[in-house]
Simulated scan of single mutants.
Amino acid sequence: MNLPTLATIEDLKKFRWFSLAGKPLREDTSSAISVKTYGQMIENIDSNSWMNLRIQALNRITNSVREYDIDLFRSWNATAKEIMPISREIADAAIEYMDFRLTDREIISKQVYWDIHHLLIEAEYSSIIEPGLFSYISYWYSVGHLPCGWKGRAPNGNLLVY
């Protein structure tokens, strides 16, 4: 793993996971909208549109790596596999801070894991790509909220945050 990925891992370990989930946003909200209810959060975090947006962001990373260096692209799966257990460890630790309904923990846990994993992928290739969606949503995790969806057509629109 490269230095930006290692630094991101250390940063993730310092996040205030979910400490402000469900509370009004204190930060600049020009690019984010507060989701007011738990039900709205669950509806958005498990939506196809949120999943599709994140898949598109990952596809942009993949395509950028492939276009930049085909040999680097060929090592993509090995890189993702190396990052996987670290992503799981950080996600599992973050989940411990959850104060969500037991029935929803699996849905939220899965989203958090993939966000962390893709953030680390983004960091791993940061020498050839600009920070993207996963870096952006990691900010909201870092200040204690839960990114849970998108309103509008990307790249325009606003992140939904619980």
Results as ranks from 00 to 15, higher is better:
Pro4Asn: 12
Thr5Lys: 06
Leu6Val: 09
Glu10His: 12
Glu10Lys: 14
Lys14Glu: 12
Phe15Trp: 15
Arg16Ser: 09
Phe18Gln: 05
Ala21Asn: 02
Leu25Asp: 02
Leu25Ile: 13
Thr29Asp: 13
Thr29Cys: 09
Thr29Trp: 03
Thr29Asn: 12
Ser30Thr: 08
Ser31Gly: 08
Ser31Thr: 07
Ile33Ala: 08
Val35Thr: 13
Tyr38Ser: 04
Met41Cys: 15
Ile42Leu: 13
Ser47Ala: 08
Ser47Pro: 01
Asn48Gln: 05
Trp50Arg: 09
Leu53Asn: 07
Arg54Asn: 01
Ile55Leu: 08
Gln56Ala: 00
Ala57Trp: 13
Arg60Asn: 10
Arg60Phe: 04
Thr62Pro: 00
Asn63Leu: 10
Tyr68Ile: 01
Ile70Gly: 00
Arg74Pro: 01
Arg74Tyr: 07
Ser75Lys: 13
Trp76Glu: 00
Asn77Arg: 07
Lys81Ser: 05
Arg88Ser: 11
Ala93Thr: 08
Ala93Gln: 07
Glu96Thr: 11
Tyr97Ala: 14
Met98His: 12
Glu106Leu: 11
Glu106Asp: 14
Ile108Val: 15
Val112Arg: 07
His117Gly: 05
Glu122Lys: 02
Glu124Ser: 07
Glu124Asp: 11
Tyr125Ile: 08
Ser126Thr: 03
Ile128Met: 15
Glu130Met: 09
Pro131Arg: 05
Gly132Asp: 09
Phe134Val: 05
Ser135Arg: 14
Ser135Pro: 08
Ser138Glu: 10
Trp140Leu: 12
Tyr141Thr: 10
Ser142Arg: 14
Gly144Glu: 03
His145Ile: 04
Leu146Pro: 02
Cys148Pro: 01
Gly149Asn: 05
Trp150Thr: 04
Gly152Thr: 00
Arg153Ile: 07
Ala154Asp: 07
Ala154Asn: 09
Pro155Arg: 13
Leu159Thr: 09
Leu160Ala: 00
Leu160Ser: 01
Val161Ala: 06
Tyr162Lys: 04
